[in-house]
Computed example of a mutant assay.
Amino acid sequence: MLASSSEPLMAKEVATAVTDGYLSLKPTVALVRDALNSHIGKGRAERESRQKVVWYTATEAGAKAAANGAEGTSASERATANEPEQATPVPAGEEAAAS
């Protein structure tokens, strides 16, 4: 949402845009603010206070991450990251030697 905006946005505006774009989602302003602050911590967004109002903008890194997907990785990387690791079987009798 931030990356596609040319103007800084308030958390309330981002929450409204998410609700409008994804009708099944109803995020609270507090939840959106927490998510935006997480993006600030990752260097994907910046915060600016003007007259007791907080405005958020995407950084260049945030815009690149938005273009590449939610976490800045490809779909195949995200799919394999969610797969459980395979355990390597240890032949019988070798358990004691392995420890």
Rank of each mutant, 00 (worst) to 15 (best):
92 A>M: 04
83 E>V: 14
76 S>G: 08
92 A>N: 07
69 G>W: 02
28 T>V: 08
88 T>H: 12
48 E>R: 07
88 T>Y: 05
14 V>N: 08
96 A>T: 03
97 A>P: 02
44 R>N: 14
11 A>L: 00
18 V>C: 09
47 R>H: 13
78 R>E: 15
25 L>M: 04
56 Y>F: 15
66 A>K: 09
62 G>L: 00
31 L>G: 13
64 K>Y: 05
36 L>S: 06
9 L>P: 02
3 A>H: 04
74 S>W: 14
41 G>C: 10
89 P>R: 05
99 S>D: 03
7 E>F: 04
42 K>G: 10
78 R>Y: 05
74 S>R: 12
75 A>Y: 02
99 S>P: 03
4 S>T: 02
60 E>L: 03
42 K>T: 10
17 A>H: 08
44 R>A: 03
4 S>Q: 05
41 G>V: 02
24 S>P: 01
98 A>F: 05
4 S>P: 00
97 A>I: 08
63 A>F: 02
81 A>D: 08
60 E>V: 00
14 V>H: 03
61 A>W: 11
38 S>E: 15
33 R>W: 06
80 T>C: 07
71 E>K: 11
75 A>C: 04
15 A>H: 08
46 E>S: 04
13 E>D: 12
54 V>R: 01
18 V>M: 15
27 P>I: 06
88 T>F: 06
67 A>H: 04
13 E>I: 06
65 A>W: 06
27 P>S: 14
42 K>C: 13
22 Y>V: 13
18 V>P: 11
18 V>A: 09
50 R>I: 13
15 A>P: 15
49 S>N: 08
52 K>I: 04
55 W>M: 09
40 I>Y: 12
77 E>L: 05
34 D>R: 13
39 H>C: 14
48 E>F: 05
40 I>V: 15
52 K>P: 05
99 S>G: 06
3 A>C: 07
2 L>C: 09
4 S>A: 04
86 Q>R: 15
92 A>T: 01
5 S>I: 02
53 V>R: 04
64 K>F: 11
44 R>P: 02
10 M>T: 14
70 A>N: 09
71 E>G: 08
78 R>T: 11
86 Q>W: 02
19 T>N: 05
64 K>C: 13
77 E>G: 05
43 G>D: 01
45 A>R: 04
29 V>E: 13
53 V>T: 10
40 I>H: 13
57 T>C: 00
49 S>I: 12
8 P>M: 00
65 A>L: 09
14 V>A: 12
98 A>E: 00
38 S>V: 05
39 H>N: 12
13 E>W: 07
99 S>I: 08
87 A>S: 07
72 G>M: 06
29 V>S: 08
67 A>S: 09
99 S>V: 03
